[in-house]
Design a protein around this nucleic acid. Structure first.
Lengths: 286, 286
DNA sequence: GATCCTTGCAAATTATTTTCGTGATAAGTT
DNA sequence: AACTTATCACGAAAATAATTTGCAAGGATC
């Protein structure tokens, strides 16, 4: 368990002196990781022993262990404690965006249900036909990314971001087919309808979405992507990055399931090396 | 600058004792961040002073500073020193992909030229018309992402992934217009032609690409995105994630330059909060 | 008024850094 | 080739700094 969650948990039980220490951690983190116990104690107007006791309280062995843990979780844990540092200084903006993106990946990794992903990869690699659904700028990008990745392995796949089309495809799909749909919010009602329709005829449905959302409940297999609220709503880029990484993982696992894919990919790679001087289109390869 | 790049840089000049210390860092990192200077010295078969000297050598003020820096960059920096774990075990595959994506963000952040980005943001926010160019699956996605982000701020922007169209637009552009083009490889010859054409008539050109590449040389302003080779060629997803983050940064800076944008964005946010139950399309907002 | 908790002081302990000297290697000199 | 001389890496020990522990005083609570 990381320091920051421990801190939030203990917050109420902290003594006045300890609260002052905690405040410094949250407000002037840079100072805190670089300070010695004496400097930190001075700044918090407490004695060094109090700082030591504080460290023990939040689950560390010693002050130096505390500093290491602090520095370690800082990278990921820091920003989602305080809402928005949001200075307009370009360096801060860049730092903030990069950190949020890394956090999103971190959270994705932590919440990934590997069993579900493996199951999804398994179904996809055996599917006679795959429909990738997603609407809105974000999810439709994910749908075309799925198409982009999967067709390379020799799979039959088509992507659609059109609700009407999705419904028709879902109605026409056979039990040997697979529908994979993405919804960041989990509340895409049309996708839910498409899933329900497909399941009536025994088509396998896979959702890339938030756990326990309507879309998740409508699907057979749920690759859940649960990010903290803050990341989610107002900063779509970091959420999208997490989805892209999830698709990357899924596609890689599918590739391992398909012997032919390895051969194809190797050929693409060789071609890439041979023609390094071409333009971007070649980078499509993987 | 982080410890691990410093380490690689200094590697050749390291003495035998120092090399032993470096080895421990790389092989038993967990031990290294938790050890005291004495424990670390013992394990490396050197004396504590040698460890202190080693710390100074890699750019730290003291041993404790060293430990903090270590713990701090560990999360992202670790893996790109060792080549490939690459087992087929799903958990490893996932870990590998996530780490590579995080590294790409880390490297992006390190190599970002903030002055160039600010300059680019400045030009974009003042442009009468913006053309976003990019071809191939990756760069065309970046182009449409640019359109997607910039039109929200009230800017006039169009994206194109069609070479012929790009040339015509470049020929028709006026000095008050801006062309922004993306090329992962930096070798998109058509984009170079479009840039050259545009510059003849004094149109500002901005490139999102590798430094010192043909595309970079053809542009007025270069937002350089330099990732290590390994990431680049065979794993397009992580490169793309870096580009997406770069666009995110650029767009955020543009937003700060445009007073009107803040108002628009606030309205979008309020609407999002009010209609939380809608579908994905609303997440397009930022 | 007894008890418990918080806190700081001072001493003890431990960790880290500095200083200094040795030995090894390389470069220059006779 | 042999002999300085310079340079450097390295560790021992001393000096310094940081951290922890034991203990007692001051408050709050019951």
């Amino acid at each position: 368990m990381d320091i920051f969650s421990k801190l939030q948990e203990e917050k109420a039980r902290l003594s006045p002196s300890e609260t002052r220490i905690a405040d410094i951690l949250l407000n002037d983190f840079e100072f805190a990781v670089n300070a010695s116990i004496i400097e930190l104690a001075d700044k918090a107007d407490v004695s060094p022993p109090t700082v030591t006791r504080f460290c023990r309280r939040v689950g560390c062995d010693s002050f130096s262990d505390f500093k290491v843990q602090l520095a370690r979780t800082a990278y990921v844990g820091m920003r989602y404690l305080r809402p928005e540092p949001k200075s307009r200084d370009p360096a801060d903006v860049a730092q903030d965006i990069i950190t949020k993106a890394q956090n999103a990946l971190f959270l994705l990794h932590r919440s990934l249900d590997m069993a579900a992903i493996e199951q999804a990869a398994d179904k996809l690699s055996k599917a006679e036909m795959i429909y990738a659904f997603g609407s809105g700028g974000n999810s439709s990008m994910i749908a075309s990314e799925l198409q982009n990745r999967l067709f390379r392995f020799g799979l039959h796949v088509t992507a659609s971001s059109d609700h009407g089309m999705q419904l028709m495809m879902a109605a026409a799909a056979k039990p040997t087919h697979v529908i994979i749909g993405s919804s960041f919010s989990g509340r895409n009602a049309e996708l839910v309808r498409a899933f329900s329709l497909a399941r009536e005829t025994g088509v396998t449905t896979i959702a890339l979405t938030q756990a326990d959302s309507p879309v998740a409940q409508a699907a057979d297999i749920v690759v859940q992507i649960d990010l903290a609220e803050g990341n989610n709503i107002f900063r779509p880029t970091s959420t999208r990055i997490a989805y892209l990484a999830a698709v990357d993982i899924l596609a890689s696992l599918v590739a391992y399931n398909i012997p032919q894919a390895a051969v194809t990919l190797r050929r693409i790679k060789q071609q890439l090396v041979a023609h390094r001087d071409g333009d971007d289109r070649q980078l499509l390869g993987d």
